[in-house]
Design a protein around this nucleic acid. Structure first.
Length: 465
DNA sequence: TGGGGTTAT
DNA sequence: ATAACCC
């Protein structure tokens, strides 16, 4: 454990300032302005090799073996046993087997169990604080600011071990118990440890956590000590952290395209980006992207933790070497749709838009998708919740119209991916005659997004059933 | 490169 | 409808 933990924390309650008599800790009057966006406490929780963990829970015999999760010809993730033997994420199955002949592979193309476990994690974290933002299936941000404030208020001066950091501190920076920002982050590290404990005790999952003053730094911090550990970043160390990145590509928020454009400008390190002319950057990338990523390069990120809530869309996709006939496409679309209907049925809400996505074969490069979408006919929507009887057939008809709108079936074609997506999800219309909702709810079966009737479901507070 | 997701334009 | 980002 860290120096800060043993040494400094033991000095409590000697941390009381001389000008604060009585039993209250000195920081009790250090108020953070309400709504202030500065000085937040954010945790990023990142599960260890998530798919592999889920598979090992399903089949404990896999725990002692090097395990990879396979999708098509890729090992998309693997446990640490396999990593020790040289298997990497997104490695070709052939390369992986070559590196590690004992590698056990399980198919992970069906995401159902991963998705279910993923939401159990998010729900568990929401018990700590409702402000939880999902990032993929295996990462969550939680804004702990309020929770930390409450714990500070409850803190008694006769709790000698109350101010002990949990886990690592980045750079072994000493904690200053007279610094309110340090104290708040330290409390955040304790909550992070409780979250990881709860994940393990209740779900059997291990993961990392990073605690810092914003999402960017929390995310970078969580990756410092890798499996099943956590790290706290103090403000004084944030520059060290961001400069420890070897390339701007490693900065969350700077993706493939932006990296290429930045490289063309001669920018490759974080410091290059920090010192580059803002004016020129704005002209090259647009003011929005330029300002955002240049702030990121200084470790600044004021983006809020946005509660994810239920998903905005459901989709199922399948990739393949070749699909070149309409019947073939129809069969695959039916499979995707069947799975989707089950999911939508379970969710309880109803999608009002359906989308079909394709990827055309192109000899190289240009990884690009095309899509067509349309409203789901209202008579189909109504049949959706009640066990999907004859919703398959009319829905496939709609999808095949979208298909023919994109693909000229009279000409040869070569597809490598099909995907069906349900979106524009709305709560069930449970409005009944005589209730307030009945008079306030815009008809959900007509063109409800138009003009004057477009007040939002969030504000209307529909009762679920 | 898989099988998902999100937001901005 | 696409393009960018995230995993």
């Amino acid at each position: 454990m860290k120096r800060a933990e043993a040494g400094e924390a033991g000095s409590w309650p000697g941390a009381l300032g001389p000008e604060e008599p009585g039993g209250l800790p000195w920081f009790h009057d250090q108020v953070v302005p309400a709504g202030s966006s500065s000085s937040r406490v954010i945790v990023h929780v990142d599960l260890d090799c998530f798919y592999a963990q889920v598979e090992m829970i399903s089949n404990p015999e896999l725990k002692s073996k090097p395990l990879g999760v396979q999708q098509k010809y890729l090992v998309v993730t693997c446990n640490y046993e396999a990593r020790k033997l040289g298997v990497k994420k997104l490695m070709n199955v052939r390369d992986a087997k070559e590196k590690c002949p004992q590698l056990v592979l399980v198919n992970g193309e069906d995401l159902t169990r991963y998705r279910e476990m993923s939401y159990k994690v998010t729900e568990l974290l929401e018990e700590f604080s409702p402000v939880v933002e999902r990032l993929g299936f295996d990462e969550n941000f939680v804004d702990l600011t309020e929770m930390v404030e409450k714990r500070l208020e409850q803190l008694q001066s006769d709790e000698p071990s109350a101010l002990t950091v949990s886990g690592h501190v980045y750079g072994n920076q000493p904690i200053n118990l007279h610094d309110i920002l340090h104290i708040r982050l330290l409390i955040g590290s304790q909550i992070a440890a409780e979250m990881r404990e709860a994940m393990y005790n209740q779900l059997g999952l291990t993961g990392c956590a990073g605690v810092a003053s914003n999402k960017l730094l929390a995310k970078l911090a969580s990756g410092i000590f890798k499996p099943n550990q956590q790290t706290l970043l103090l403000p004084e160390s944030s520059q060290d952290l961001i400069h420890s990145l070897n390339h701007i590509k490693e900065m969350p928020g700077i993706g493939y395209k932006t990296t290429k454009r930045l490289e063309a400008l001669g920018i490759s390190s974080v410091r290059d980006l920090q010192t580059f002319s803002s004016k020129i950057l704005e002209k090259e990338l647009g003011i929005s992207v330029a300002q955002r990523i240049q702030k990121l390069s200084f470790g600044e990120d004021n983006s809020p933790v946005t509660p994810s809530g239920p998903p905005q869309s459901f989709s199922e996709e399948d990739s393949f070497k070749k699909c070149s006939s309409e019947v073939e496409a129809k069969n695959k679309i039916e499979e995707l749709l069947a799975s989707l209907l089950n999911r939508v049925c379970q969710d309880g809400r109803k999608p009002h838009t359906i989308r079909l996505i394709i990827r055309r074969y192109s000899s190289e490069k240009h990884y690009s998708r095309e899509s067509r979408q349309c409203p789901i006919p209202s008579h189909i929507i109504q049949k959706l919740g009640i066990g999907n009887y004859d919703v398959m057939t009319p829905m496939v008809d709609v999808l095949m119209k979208l298909f023919r709108n994109m693909v000229n079936v009279k000409m040869p074609f070569h597809l490598t991916l099909l995907s069906v997506c349900f979106c524009n999800l709305k709560a069930l219309n449970t409005a009944k005659k005589g209730t307030i909702d009945y008079y306030l709810t815009p008809s959900l079966s007509t063109t409800s997004r138009s003009g004057k009737h477009s007040f939002k479901m969030k504000d209307t507070h529909m009762e679920d059933f």
